[in-house]
Nucleic acid binder design. Structure first.
Lengths: 135, 135
DNA sequence: CTGAATCCGAAAGGATACTG
DNA sequence: CAGTATCCTTTCGGATTCAG
């Protein structure tokens, strides 16, 4: 079974002595939370105001949206622009860097759509075979 | 600024009335935790035993590794094989579905490597311009 | 409208000890 | 070796209230 490799080269090893950290750990730390990628997805449709974001990103609280867009802005993925109107107007949009990332997220979303059914079936089967476990 | 779109079609809208859920939310629920992606990355290098996984996925506790591989197995991304030797031998490997996903993760890892420096600079700049915030 | 501040419950995850 | 069980800390994130 050491021949179980498929010829596909391995992803950067994470946490090995020679590779104390890997790219994936970074992405996850930045986007692994509940809202970041959903906000990016919404902004991939164009510039949005704060309220628009909150309406379109289902379930996000005001607090978490604030924290999320701030972190994304800090990482240079999102551009925030404030207009001194009254009441205040603030818009958010993806930077070039943010857009390049959103392209990758699309492939992930596509993968999920394509495999959603199969994954659901796997879970069903697994649950049937492991009645005691709650998971 | 409603013209802020770049011509790139939008990612599937998440949470809108017409699209109560989107693929991204699913992927995140499955892989958004701290270890799933790293385990997949490690298994992209071939079959691994439990101990090997724990050694190569830096920082994962025995408990979390157990939970993680079980969830991945439940979703049909990982195949677990137990051999009744003594002491017990258990191996883990990616299924075809898991491998198809690991391909996408590679592009994410590449993106991270390519943008790590720029993101770090963005953060530095942001932190300098917002001295009061701790983030 | 766009936040900031506080409070609090839920959940994730680590450490440790024990088992087949 | 490959888990399981328990405890306990930390973090995440929702609800609410206040402010510019």
């Amino acid at each position: 079974m050491s021949a179980g490799n498929t010829g596909v080269t391995m992803l950067e090893p994470c946490g090995s002595p020679t590779h104390p950290d890997c790219g994936l750990r970074d992405v996850l730390d930045r986007l692994g939370d509940r809202w970041s990628v959903l906000v990016i997805a919404e902004l991939s449709g164009g510039t949005r105001r704060f309220r628009e974001l909150q309406r379109n990103v289902h379930g996000v609280s005001q607090r978490m949206l604030t924290l999320t867009v701030r972190r994304l802005e800090r990482d240079g993925l999102v551009l925030r622009t404030a207009y001194p109107t009254v009441p205040m107007t603030v818009t958010y949009e993806l930077t070039d860097r943010g857009r390049s990332l959103s392209e990758l997220l699309r492939s992930l979303a596509d993968w999920s759509s394509a495999n959603r059914e199969a994954v659901a079936q796997s879970r069903h089967r697994w649950d049937a075979e492991h009645p005691t476990d709650v998971t």
